[in-house]
Design a protein around this nucleic acid. Structure first.
Lengths: 107, 107
DNA sequence: TTCAAATATTCTAATATTTAGATACTTGTA
DNA sequence: TACAAGTATCTAAATATTAGAATATTTGAA
């Protein structure tokens, strides 16, 4: 099932908090690496690494302008996907809140 | 960003070929563990392990009937999510085919 | 050319995930 | 109770992912 392997790679790329935060930033349009870095308040190398993951899976595209690299989501349907995911969370709000409570117990 | 952490967990749960294959089987309705095992042709323990991942993320529910445990997708909107993902793949068919070619080179 | 800014890559240690095999649990039945 | 079928969990080894530090690359300007 090579298709499942490929699709799994895609979902795996979405399976990281930083990468989801990046995609949320890109909802408003393209953003430079430093803009993302400031918004997320994490290491520059980490931003580039996570962007590389999204780039390798064709989820985002980049455009260079001088020394600045702007990223954007390649297919707006990605946002539709995230919205459906959000709806699923809303449908199970109780579980979600349990989960959030669990998460907030962590260090 | 605890919500991103939680959502990432959800997508991570979808980020595995076996788990996607299980969800595809469950499109037609509930399935027992052994039915899934036969359909996917993998170890019983592996099926249970992957089902446990989906269960922990509230993606599937289980129902016991005698010694048999039947699994089903908890929210049909999951399928909608998978369908949107499929559309995204179709939109980028060329990239997908490149990716499949790459994958099939593997051992 | 040299420098500085912006971004990307490499390396490494810590952590997480995956898989198969062994074992344990649960339920119905002899 | 003893057993068998169906599942789940535990364990260990292999593999993958992660974050940060260091380094490299690219570009525009002096």
């Amino acid at each position: 099932m090579p298709l499942h392997r490929f699709k799994a790679e895609f979902f795996k790329a979405l399976g990281h908090p930083t990468r989801l935060a990046i995609l949320d930033q890109l909802r408003a349009g393209e953003r430079s690496v430093q803009e993302l870095q400031q918004a997320l308040a994490i290491e520059q190398s980490n931003v580039s690494q996570q962007l590389a993951v999204l780039r390798n899976k064709n989820i985002v595209d980049s455009r260079k302008e001088g020394t600045v690299v702007y990223y954007r989501v390649r297919d707006p349907m990605i946002f539709q996907l995230l919205d459906v995911a959000r709806q699923i969370f809303n449908n199970h709000l109780i579980d979600t809140q349990e989960m959030l409570a669990t998460l907030s117990e962590e260090p």
